[in-house]
Design a protein around this nucleic acid. Structure first.
Lengths: 148, 148
DNA sequence: TATTGTTATACTCTATAACTATA
DNA sequence: TATAGTTATAGAGTATAACAATA
């Protein structure tokens, strides 16, 4: 499924091949994340939200920014996760309009388990490379991410 | 947002770093695809479906396999895309149960435009690498994809 | 007035279960 | 009986618009 295929200039062939590899890799990776999420009744978005909240409490508006979603969407996501006991809304004593979201113990545990399982599911792929190759690949990806 | 972070054995640090880079790269890539899809009122799934059908006609069941979705989901996706004039259902003369899906001219054009735009949107990222680096990165990604 | 969230609404995506038609 | 699709249904994810409360 060559998602992309259009540029056929001499110098652009390498770039085109890279983009195809990038897109295919991304679909494989997202499929792994989606599957692990599903095993815990979490959508990809819920999984991302837990990952964000693992490091820090966040305001509703900050979650909307991080996830690139409308604030009304966040209300629904947080509603459902809160109903499951994965997180809690907390009032901000300084600003009465603001609502902060914090993981519960259960949410923290689930996020940790998810992270472990993701690493486990991707490792068969990453382990096809030796350490030097892993290093090179990581460096190249990070270089690209910086310039994004 | 370190999606993954759990293994801290000496040899696993490189792998962990790679997995993080892989996941972050995937989210960036999927965000680009989602955005370009949205600009054409296409969900990521619809965009993938068009990409698949760009190369070949496909049975409903084949689409379900490619996309990893239930056949009932495919019925809905095809319904909506057909209503928009992007594709058509066609009867299979050999097997009366089977339904084949083919892009219309409009669907083909949209798929081509999408591919071009995806390449254009990802190129600022990929262009931060020189040709040799692109080559190396592509090779490493493809190596991993083979073993998936 | 501007900002932060919630709610009402509508549509897409998704799966499960029950169904129809064909093999 | 088994297979290929469709339909009915239900729930999650999403955005827009209107709203309430606070600043």
């Amino acid at each position: 499924m060559p998602f992309t295929e259009s540029a056929t200039q001499p110098a652009q062939l390498d770039q085109q091949a890279l983009i195809d590899a990038l897109v295919r890799t991304s679909f494989v990776t997202m499929a792994v994340l989606t599957k692990i999420g599903a095993e815990h009744d979490l959508s990809l978005t819920q999984l991302r939200m837990l990952a964000i909240l693992r490091d820090r409490r966040a305001k509703m508006s900050a979650l909307a920014d991080y996830l690139g979603l409308d604030k009304s969407t966040i209300s629904g996501l947080v509603d459902r996760a809160e109903k499951r006991g994965l997180l809690q809304r907390e009032a901000n004593p300084v600003d009465g309009r603001s609502v902060e979201v914090v993981l519960t113990r259960e949410g923290t545990e689930l996020a940790a388990r998810g992270a472990t399982e993701i690493a486990g599911s991707l490792s068969p792929m990453t382990n096809t490379l030796n350490r030097a190759e892993m290093h090179r690949l990581t460096t190249l990806l990070e270089r690209m991410l910086e310039h994004h």
